[in-house]
């Protein structure tokens, strides 16, 4: 454990952390309550799967929770917008720039995080994986909100084919999002190395040593510019 540094560098503002968790918890509720729709097996077969557990009032309550959580999800970006407007553009700018370095990162990462090699190209504040995650989040957010609102308010008013299209868009967003979420949770809370990044989304700070290894470009830039916010933690971290 000798390498664990007690010095941490600030990565996210409080508003960003709040945004992340409002979005994440709404998403989780939506996933749990929405999932029930997709687990009824072939209707010709005897009933197995989640369907039978979710009948009647249980399922109806799930639908209600789904709507409440949907409002939470749709409103969550306000927390970042209102709470820390200044960080919005610089962060978005970096997230939206996907270069050759990011592509190389995406190719190497599966091997690197399994065998420790080959080495990854040095990354900025957001690595290629963060960026891909962000794209999936934005894409599924648009998919969920547009199709969800259509199913919510357009029921009976839109043509049948449009309703079915909304079901397809909602489901596709679900599978894409669910796979990304599983990977996201694995890498930030389970994987022995990368889970050290979790504190960035709880305290806003991440170990300096870890940041140097994973986000070299960003750390060097912050230190050189004198904008790095460092803290030393007492005791073991």
């Amino acid at each position: 454990m000798a390498v664990r540094s007690k010095v941490k560098i600030k990565k996210f503002s409080r508003a960003q952390v709040v945004f992340h968790w409002v979005y994440g918890s709404s998403w989780f509720l939506l996933m749990l309550t929405g999932m029930s729709f997709l687990w009824r097996p072939d209707p010709g077969a005897a009933a197995v799967g989640l369907g039978p557990l979710l009948q009647g009032t249980v399922g109806q309550s799930f639908r209600l929770v789904h709507r409440v959580a949907a409002i939470g999800l749709m409103a969550s970006p306000l927390t970042w917008l209102v709470g820390d407007f200044r960080s919005l553009w610089p962060d978005l700018k970096e997230l939206l720039r996907f270069g050759i370095n990011d592509a190389r990162y995406m190719l190497i990462a599966p091997l690197h995080y399994t065998f420790g090699k080959p080495a990854l190209p040095p990354q900025g504040k957001y690595n290629g994986g963060h960026k891909v995650n962000f794209y999936v989040v934005v894409l599924t957010f648009i998919g969920f909100v547009s199709s969800g609102l259509l199913m919510w308010f357009g029921r009976g008013a839109v043509p049948d084919g449009t309703f079915h299209m909304a079901q397809i868009v909602h489901s596709t967003s679900f599978w894409l999002g669910a796979i990304m979420t599983a990977l996201h949770i694995y890498l930030t809370a389970v994987h022995p190395f990368t889970r050290r990044a979790l504190s960035a989304m709880t305290q806003g700070f991440v170990e300096l040593n870890y940041a140097k290894a994973e986000h070299k470009v960003w750390v060097e830039k912050e230190i050189a510019a004198g904008t790095a916010v460092l803290v030393e933690e007492p005791g073991d971290c």
Binding site: V3, S5, T114, G116, A119, H191, P192, F193, L208, A213
Partner: peptide, 29 residues
């Protein structure tokens, strides 16, 4: 992910990354 976890547990013993500086912990002082 399960497969990765079994492999990564051995690769990243103690959570130590390969690209991580091996010297003593960085400190403000």
């Amino acid at each position: 992910m399960v497969i990765n976890w079994f492999a990564a547990r051995r690769t990243f013993k103690g959570g130590h990354g390969p690209g991580e500086e091996a010297e003593a912990p960085a400190s403000l002082h």
